[in-house]
Design a binder for these strands. Structure first.
Lengths: 107, 107
DNA sequence: TTCTTATGTGGCTATATTACCACATATCGC
DNA sequence: GCGATATGTGGTAATATAGCCACATAAGAA
């Protein structure tokens, strides 16, 4: 069992990539097959497949096979709250995550 | 202004490194100077300095100079909720973030 | 002024991450 | 069986990240 802070960091890291974050948010709305998820992004299908493998390895999603298709669903439903929380962060703080530096004093 | 999902991903990424996550959690408890923060981790002081620069650039922390010391404090207090949420995730799901694969079916 | 402490930046290297292509496997319809 | 569809993996190249050292700056102490 890894250190708690490292486990937390690992989850955050997993959902800190735009494609993986979007996958998680898409799964909030229900089960999706790999092909549906892949079609959402302008990257290679196999790249999405690897993102899914990472999410699966961390236990963030789980999958189910049905014929040709493999359906993914969220296994950590609590991420819904976490990301809702993050939406609140951005809504309440317009300067957040604008790493161009504008709007803040330079150093 | 970047795409919303990218801004969210950027915040998550910033706090997805064990040292930066620990810095944020330490700042939950109040203002700390760079030297106090640096002493918490077994990495070079200048490395911590760069982590702080990243958190500052994203607007996650802000700083204040007082004599020789530079004090950092959290500027996105809402992260407290977000990380409390994540603690709940890990408390409720023992299998989370154990990327060794044990406890889950292999693929 | 000179020394010491606190801090940040530039530069470099090692490692990790991402994305693509090529290819392999599995299932379905015919 | 054969072709088409859905999916995953291995390999590799480009890029990003993390860490350390050397060095620069700033402020207080002597």
């Amino acid at each position: 069992m890894k250190d708690l802070v490292e486990r937390k960091a690992a989850i955050l890291k997993a959902i800190s990539h735009p494609v993986r974050l979007s996958i998680v948010e898409e799964l909030f709305r229900g089960e999706r097959c790999a092909c549906e998820l892949a079609s959402l992004f302008p990257v290679d299908r196999t790249t999405v497949s690897k993102h899914l493998a990472l999410l699966r390895r961390l236990g963030i999603v789980e999958d189910r096979k049905d014929g040709l298709k493999i359906y993914y669903r969220l296994r950590m439903g609590c991420l819904v709250d976490l990301l809702r929380c993050l939406d609140g962060v951005l809504a309440n703080d317009a300067r957040c995550c604008d790493d161009s530096g504008e709007g803040r004093e330079k150093r």
